[in-house]
Design a binder for these strands. Sequence first.
DNA 1: AATGAATGAGCATTCATTCAT
DNA 2: GATGAATGAATGCTCATTCAT
Lengths: 191, 191, 191, 191
Amino acid sequence: MARLKDPSKIPLIYEATLSLILKSGYTDLRMADVAREAEMATGTLYIYFKNKEELINKLFLYLKEEKISQMFENADSDDSFFISFKKLWTAYFTISLKEYPKMLFIEQYAYSSLLSSETKTKSDELVAPLLNTLVKAQEEDLILKIPAPIMLSHIMGATLEIVKYFINTSTHPSPEIFEQSFQMTWNSIRK
Amino acid sequence: MARLKDPSKIPLIYEATLSLILKSGYTDLRMADVAREAEMATGTLYIYFKNKEELINKLFLYLKEEKISQMFENADSDDSFFISFKKLWTAYFTISLKEYPKMLFIEQYAYSSLLSSETKTKSDELVAPLLNTLVKAQEEDLILKIPAPIMLSHIMGATLEIVKYFINTSTHPSPEIFEQSFQMTWNSIRK
Amino acid sequence: MARLKDPSKIPLIYEATLSLILKSGYTDLRMADVAREAEMATGTLYIYFKNKEELINKLFLYLKEEKISQMFENADSDDSFFISFKKLWTAYFTISLKEYPKMLFIEQYAYSSLLSSETKTKSDELVAPLLNTLVKAQEEDLILKIPAPIMLSHIMGATLEIVKYFINTSTHPSPEIFEQSFQMTWNSIRK
Amino acid sequence: MARLKDPSKIPLIYEATLSLILKSGYTDLRMADVAREAEMATGTLYIYFKNKEELINKLFLYLKEEKISQMFENADSDDSFFISFKKLWTAYFTISLKEYPKMLFIEQYAYSSLLSSETKTKSDELVAPLLNTLVKAQEEDLILKIPAPIMLSHIMGATLEIVKYFINTSTHPSPEIFEQSFQMTWNSIRK
DNA sequence: AATGAATGAGCATTCATTCAT
DNA sequence: GATGAATGAATGCTCATTCAT
């Protein structure tokens, strides 16, 4: 009987890939390097992923799912919308800062031609819970009635760009700036 | 006397490069294709640019400068801050939408390892006029006192992400949504 | 288990390289041609040699070693010095004539900038046995007491140049000329 | 009326070419570099030489002629053969040592495929005076009766190889070694 | 399944030569 | 004649992918 695929290898490959993209960007990503970093042979990669493109697509979805799950980790259905929203925003801000490479990867590839349309569709589905949160609040008249995807784009775009600023200047947000950043976001959607 | 370097060739090369990156992304950018698109020989590219990397760096600065100039084109020193700000925001929104590929190029490369630190420094200098606009308004107590780079990141990140949404869904913003988008931004910084 | 590196490939590459240098010289040596001649893919060359330069350096040492081994093949420790010397000289003359391209390759590259200093050092070591032969004879007062490297240069330079003459005129040495050539050499060092 | 070709440019080009070959070898010789070193435009080279190959061929003959002239500079028809021979040998040894790059160039290219057969023929003609010197001495029964081209090859090959040794070890021949080197050569041809 | 040697298309860059000025 | 920008064929080397073991 043939050996079974070793499920522990996939995360190893993801980690290796990310680590290399972080170091030198996608342009310099070589499959042989991924294999070496993941401590396996080149050929082994092709047992788990059809090719480089599939690896990138799967990694993208894996990370996007992971990040969105993390955002909801502290969610509590008893919370008011404001508290829910602040928790989500804080999670997004904090995770982006802490796991910037992963976030940058997600963002850089989101609109890139390296992703298949299938991946893009799946990616949109993952965002649905965030949209629903906004829609519900709009129905309850708690925030402005602006199409939810537009509103979500505004919020996430604004927040990630601020995170980029801190990463890029190698500085860290003070509690005051953290609070101000949230204020801007909240002001932009509140009634 | 020999021919002089033909200064009209540089914009031709920029246009060709952009057009190709737009079609297929940087990963697939081949110098031979740039040359063909610009209707010159491969070797000619290397008279005007040391190598592919320099071409990308110079193109980045060229576009960034062009875009920021365009943003200030309608500026009028007699305008109130609100009018000034709305003009700038409108220009940013409109240009991003109309010249999305250029904007995406600027954004995708801004933090990429393909750009030299020298290019990054020069790039920051180009943004200074935008920061000054905010700082002056803060000194006149017209908007929130939040560090200008943070505020600017918030504004531009939010706006570009909304533009991406329209591009990605192949839709166009209605006047109403345009106005709502501005409102969110304005609300986020107003006193 | 994967295929092991195939040790038979290295001599194949050496032979192919030599054969091409023989035909058209180093200047026209293209790696793609080496690969075709050795009946393998271009990339395979780079598994066995880091680059063209390393291939040339390794080939040089391989040939130098081979040639010097061949010179000693008929050596017999019971021979008198004169017999030993004549055997060595004859071998050098004969091999140079028969395998002129290899000898020319060795000679042309010996002082060229294509060889690393490491290769040059190793090359010198290979010559040591020849020097020792002369030194011993000098100690036994059988030949002139002239620094061995000078004497060896004299002998080998003279002999190879004669070989070049025959190659260049597409003629062959008569037994008489062979004997005369040896006489000149022997006369130059005898007591 | 058109300007005349400037005859002073040819030696300038020769010097520039030699100087570059000396630095980095023929493989790295680029016409643009020759032009820069000779302080003229690339195109100008092509006014004086049809192409790179012609430049190399002409340079070869120029140098070979120069070197052989220099060898005969001290010649005196009243000298005995031994004195004549010693003067010639000394000149060859000294010039080779002092102008090693030029000598190496001559030697390296003498049998190379870069030289046309026409150049090779002309080159042989330049050597005739040296052959004649030997033939005359043989007719007068002053040296061994061995075919002159063989004898000349022996002499020049031996001598140049000794020079190479000194260049290669960055050492200089003592008067004693100089004398010993001559002795070996003289012994090899004397009656 | 795992390995890593082998493959060969692909691409950035160079450089001899031409030719418009 | 002199210039040097323009040309584009040529080439060393890379790297995604395959496949024999």
